[in-house]
Write a protein that binds this DNA or RNA. Structure first.
Lengths: 147, 147
DNA sequence: TTGCTTTTGCAACACAGTTGCAAATACAAT
DNA sequence: ATTGTATTTGCAACTGTGTTGCAAAAGCAA
């Protein structure tokens, strides 16, 4: 993962008509540089440069990033939310399947997977389909084999 | 769902060399009679017959049932554990398909759903497929229409 | 009934995440 | 640059789910 200049991230935020704040810059940069899905706690620990970010602010920044489609939010096995940066040109969510690596907790978008709408019981109406495949990603598979 | 006699459940527990207690009987009977996954809170509410079950006891009974292979434990999107009775002849893992009502937040099991294993990028390995359809259930749809 | 082991109930705790609100600040308009 | 304003932040207190330790109660076998 090549490190990105703060300016790039800044432009990314501005392009969404959003305010560019240090917290958003730092958190998104961190997510984009990370090989793994990070928990709130992980991120709090990792943000050692500059002023410490308030717990609540961090929660809000993370939720905002998810809302903006810039990050993914998935609950891990210990039912703790883990966040990872979304792919650059991300399609609106619900339109594609996700791959969740149970080793590094990263979320990969599988754009070319059309989740076929199945038949539902009478009276049920579907608004969104969530399709997540769990397993081990290529990177973690490779690392596993070398041990 | 045909209701089961307490005696049947009792035999089921005894067959595992386990002690038959009221809490275990009532909780397992409830899970077996329910069509959807139940949260700890749901179960606490539902156990109106007889003496109220202690919070902690309920947690322990549920974990014990899971440990015994008599129940499944899954964290939902709101990171709350939901429990459901295990099928008699247990289907291979990863075949779970759910409908999540975004109004009442209940989870329905969709038995007859084809979880076709899709093709993954090279190096990726799938262990479990999570397929959740979000929308409005029949009950909430009806209620919505009457307002 | 006795005796031993498992299970229960209680109180207190741990931890992730949330809410309300006043102070700070990004940014646009002057 | 200065000002005005809506957004964002930081703090404190709170919610809800799940856990731990331990003494009392209950299941079950002899």
């Amino acid at each position: 993962m090549s490190p990105e200049a703060p300016h790039d991230i800044s432009r990314l935020l501005r392009a969404r008509g959003a305010r560019v704040t240090p917290a958003r810059l730092r958190v998104l940069a961190l997510l984009r540089a990370s090989e793994r899905g990070l928990s709130h706690h992980d991120i709090e620990q990792a943000l050692t440069d500059g002023a410490p970010v308030d717990r609540v602010t961090l929660y809000r920044v993370l939720d905002w990033l998810v809302e903006q489609g810039l990050a993914h939010k998935v609950a891990d096995e210990q039912r703790v939310f883990r966040f990872s940066a979304a792919a650059r040109d991300d399609v609106p969510h619900g339109a594609h399947a996700h791959f969740v690596c149970d080793d590094c907790n990263k979320v990969f978008c599988l754009d070319d997977l059309p989740p076929a709408t199945p038949r539902l019981p009478t009276g049920f109406a579907s608004t969104q389909i969530e399709f997540a495949i769990h397993g081990h990603c290529a990177h973690c598979n490779r690392r596993e084999r070398h041990q």
